[in-house]
Structure formats: structure tokens, C-alpha cells
């Protein structure tokens, strides 16, 4: 099947995830998607912060009404004119102190309200995200892959299950990927072997090598047998080559690199040599030795390798 050429819109970034939550007050339903209006009833969504603020404001209003009632009763019920004045003054002092006190603690009070709302509405939020996920499913069914992926990407900020990751990966596998897309890899790594994920990873690494991370290399190493069966040994060779991206990865996965060293193209060997050469103080272990030996055998007369001057000493070794 031909892959769909699509364009993703930019992901909305917020400092905290809960800021992405919004609610349709009419349906009493939460959503984490980017839409501004509820797809069910068309009402404009209210953001989480606005929601908490409105709840907080109405709480403060109720408190203010109670205070006024108490103070007014106190004043009206005063038996003499003197006690009336006295009540009036103490009532005023009380109101002022109350207002000052509340404004000093306004931040922590807002915070507590937010926390309470998230806890009380947790079930509602989960149901809302479930509904969002159904919408994404519908998009996939109707072959609207870009909106489907955008939905799953937002939901993926909240749900980390393998099932959610694989659903995203499967949509991505039907899309022709481009380097200008904001693609992810590490966040999509499932907890066990998954063929669709590996297929996606190999594809995405072809267009953006910088996406490779420690966790990703670890995944390839842990599931190497299954990967070789499904994708051939060359896929592992590619990943081993990409492991040379960073000094730290080379240190951590030196055994893995050593295994594939003999099959690396010249450009990869050059890269490895230049890193080893630039960091002589590091403990490279047998990798350094093996690399030197390889260079001496295979690239001894290659001028590109002259600058590493591993020359005679190693050759005499071999």
C-alpha cells in the first residue's frame, strides 16, 4: 500500500501537561486534543486553568457573602447604639483581615483547588481521553492519518501504555516520513518486542539519525534475535553504525560496536577512529585495540587514515 503524504501541524507545547486539559461544560467532558470546540455539541472548551479559576472565584464569592451576612447580623442585632458602633468597627476590621489573609495565600489556595479538581475529576478525565482516542480511531478508519496521528500524539502525553505507542507507530508506518516532521522515537519504545515499532524505528532513523538514544540502542540489542529474523542483520549493522553518534554511546555499547566493526563502511570506521583519537584519556578497552588492528589491516595505505598514525606499532603487532 502506498504511504500517505501528509503534513502535521505543530504540536502545542505547554509547561505542564494538565494545562492541555480542557472541558466542555455542556457535555461535562474533558479533552486533551487541540480543538477549540467540542466535536459533540460545538461549545467552546474551557481550559483547565480557567476552570479552576472560575471554581475558585465562586468559592471566594460564597465566602464573602457569608462574611457579610454574619457581620450584618452582628451589627443589626446590636442592643445599644454603642455596641452597634463597636460591632461595626470590629466587623470592618474582620473583613479587612479576612481579605488580606486570603490574598496572601491566594497562590496556594489556587493550587489546592487545582489539585482537588484533578483528583475528583480523574475518572471524568480518563473517560474524556478515552473519547479522544475513539475519535482518533475513527480518523484511522476513514484514512485521515494526519489528524489521527496528531490526536494520538496529544493523548500520548497522558497515556504511556504499549497499546497507545503501537497505535501511533502503526499510523506512522502508513505515512511517508520526512525530516521536517516533528518525529519521536524514544517516547514510542514499547516494553517488549514489536515488529511495527522496529519497522518505524529503522525508517525514522534513516531520515533523522539524531533521534537515536541510549534507550533505543538498548532496545535493538535486547531484541536483536527477533530483529535479525524480521529485518535481517543489516538493520543491526545500521544501528551499530549510528551508535557512533556520541562518545558516551560508544563507551556504553562498545561490545555491540565491536561485533559489527569489520562490516562498517569506511566512513563509519573513520568516525570511530577520530573519536578514539580525540579522546585518548578514555578507557576504550578492547574496542580501541580492535579498531587499530582493523585500520592496520584494511586501511593501512589509505591516506584518510594517515592522521591517526596507528601505523607501524600496530602493524608489527598483527
Amino acid at each position: 500500500m502506498a504511504k500517505q503524504a501528509v503534513r502535521f501541524s505543530k504540536k502545542k507545547r505547554t509547561k505542564y501537561r494538565f494545562q492541555k486539559l480542557k472541558m466542555c461544560k455542556k457535555c461535562q467532558r474533558y479533552s486533551v486534543l487541540k480543538d477549540d470546540t467540542c466535536p459533540k455539541c460545538g461549545t467552546t472548551f474551557v481550559g483547565m486553568e480557567a476552570l479552576v479559576k472560575s471554581i475558585f472565584k465562586s468559592r471566594l464569592l460564597t465566602e464573602a457573602i457569608w462574611i457579610l451576612i454574619i457581620v450584618s447580623i452582628g451589627i443589626v442585632a446590636a442592643p445599644t447604639v454603642r455596641t452597634l458602633y463597636y460591632s461595626l468597627i470590629s466587623g470592618l476590621v474582620f473583613v479587612v483581615s479576612y481579605v488580606v489573609l486570603t490574598s496572601i495565600f491566594i497562590k496556594s489556595e489556587y493550587f489546592i483547588h487545582l489539585k482537588k479538581l484533578l483528583r475528583v475529576d480523574l475518572k471524568k478525565i480518563a473517560i474524556g481521553i478515552q473519547y479522544d482516542s475513539e475519535l482518533a480511531k475513527k480518523d484511522v478508519k476513514e484514512d485521515r492519518l494526519a489528524p489521527a496521528y496528531e490526536k494520538l500524539r496529544e493523548i500520548g502525553d497522558f497515556l504511556y501504555s504499549d497499546q497507545m505507542k503501537i497505535r501511533r507507530v502503526m499510523v506512522l508506518n502508513d505515512i511517508s516520513l520526512r525530516s521536517d516532521m516533528e518525529l519521536e522515537l524514544e517516547t514510542l519504545i514499547p516494553s517488549s518486542y514489536d515488529k511495527d515499532f522496529v519497522k518505524y524505528a529503522l525508517e525514522v532513523l534513516k531520515i533523522n539519525r539524531t533521534l537515536i538514544t541510549k534507550k533505543c540502542i538498548g532496545y535493538f540489542i535486547n531484541h536483536r534475535d527477533a530483529i535479525v529474523i524480521d529485518f535481517g542483520i543489516n538493520s543491526l549493522l545500521t544501528v551499530a553504525g549510528m551508535t557512533l553518534r556520541m562518545k558516551l554511546y560508544i563507551l556504553e555499547f562498545s561490545e555491540f560496536i565491536e561485533e559489527f566493526l569489520d562490516y562498517f563502511p569506511k566512513e563509519r570506521v573513520l568516525r570511530l577512529c577520530s573519536i578514539l583519537h580525540a579522546n585518548p584519556e578514555m578507557e576504550w578497552g578492547s574496542l580501541e585495540e580492535k579498531t587499530n588492528r582493523l585500520v592496520a589491516m584494511k586501511y593501512h595505505y589509505d591516506p584518510d587514515f594517515k592522521r591517526f598514525s596507528v601505523g607501524d606499532e600496530v602493524v608489527s603487532h598483527v
Binding site: 505542564y16 489539585k115 497522558f158 497515556l159 504511556y160 501504555s161
Partner: peptide, 11 residues
Amino acid sequence: GIDEELVIMLN
């Protein structure tokens, strides 16, 4: 903290 808590509870 609440961001973490929310995600943990949802998952």
C-alpha cells in the same frame, strides 16, 4: 508534582 500524579493515576 500534580502533573506527575495525574499521569501516574491515569496510567
